[in-house]
């Protein structure tokens, strides 16, 4: 759909160029407006699209200023109005008159009025912070833990690294894979039932962006730990302190980093 807008812009440009050559200021005006609209919409191909309201405002201002430009001199303004007058009054443009003035314009107005008066019902949408700021302190089964500066104690035990990761694998496949997926891609076999959908761990934009202390907090506290801005009422992420020990949470964290080839942010 977006791809037709550059074409529209090109058509507008063509119309303006031809009309400048043929000295028809009315079509020049139309051409420039089409060009502008096409360009504003085409921007969506490269950057986040402009909101509809911004485009409407910009177009209104363009129409206004170009009308001023074309109406500064009486003569040019008369020339500008000529095509409209010709359609309205000329004997040889009868068919065009019926088509535009008596069919197209009334229908268009009717349609625009309809879109304005027909009620539209949209369910409420809530913005959600996916990675909220963790608190500086948290409780784990009643024990107070400082989240800031918290590190995975098992990472120091390099001798047992493989064993700890394997333990983490077992924990993952008994607690997490239903939602976060057999392949840690967020496409677990029960995932579809929940909203928001479970997060994938593959790729560089989830756990790779987070320090391990965040993962520990998020896994341990689950939905209960989320601030209001993250919609805790929708989250199906369990509070894993109910089911796992501290050490088990650290083990599963090691596994999800290891299995996806990601490294915790330090």
């Amino acid at each position: 759909m977006l791809k037709i807008y550059p074409v529209l812009a090109a058509v507008g440009l063509l119309i303006s160029i031809v009309s400048v050559i043929r000295k028809s200021s009315f079509f020049n005006f139309l051409g420039i407006l089409i060009l502008l609209f096409g360009l504003l919409k085409s921007a969506g191909l490269f950057i986040p699209p402009f909101p509809g309201q911004v485009i409407t405002m910009y177009m209104a201002m363009s129409i206004f200023s170009f009308l001023i430009y074309f109406s500064i001199q009486e003569e040019t303004f008369q020339a500008f109005l000529e095509p409209m007058r010709a359609v309205l009054g000329d004997e040889d443009k009868k068919i065009l008159r019926v088509l535009i003035v008596f069919i197209a314009l009334p229908l268009l107005t009717g349609f625009i009025t309809y879109t304005k008066v027909v009620p539209v019902y949209e369910p409420p949408v809530s913005a959600r912070i996916v990675h909220p700021e963790p608190p500086s302190q948290m409780e784990f089964r009643g024990k107070t833990i400082n989240v800031i500066g918290l590190e995975n104690p098992l990472r120091k035990d390099t001798a047992n690294f493989a064993k700890n990761v394997e333990d983490g694998k077992k924990i993952y496949y008994q607690n997490c894979f239903y939602c976060h997926g057999d392949d840690l891609d967020g496409k677990g076999h029960l995932a579809q039932a929940y909203n928001p959908l479970p997060l994938p761990f593959r790729g560089g934009d989830t756990i790779a962006q987070l320090p391990e202390s965040f993962v520990f907090w998020r896994v341990s506290k689950g939905w209960r730990g989320l601030p209001a801005g993250s919609g805790p009422w929708n989250s199906s992420m369990p509070s894993f302190e109910d089911f796992l020990t501290e050490e088990e949470v650290w083990k599963v964290s090691m596994f999800i980093y290891e299995a996806t080839g990601n490294k915790p942010r330090t």
Binding site: L88, F102, L105, P106, T109, F111, I112, T113, Y114
Partner: peptide
């Protein structure tokens, strides 16, 4: 409303 708007524009034309 839409038919009224259409008729008005028609009449104006």
């Amino acid at each position: 409303m839409p038919p009224i708007a259409a008729i008005l524009v028609f009449a104006l034309g």
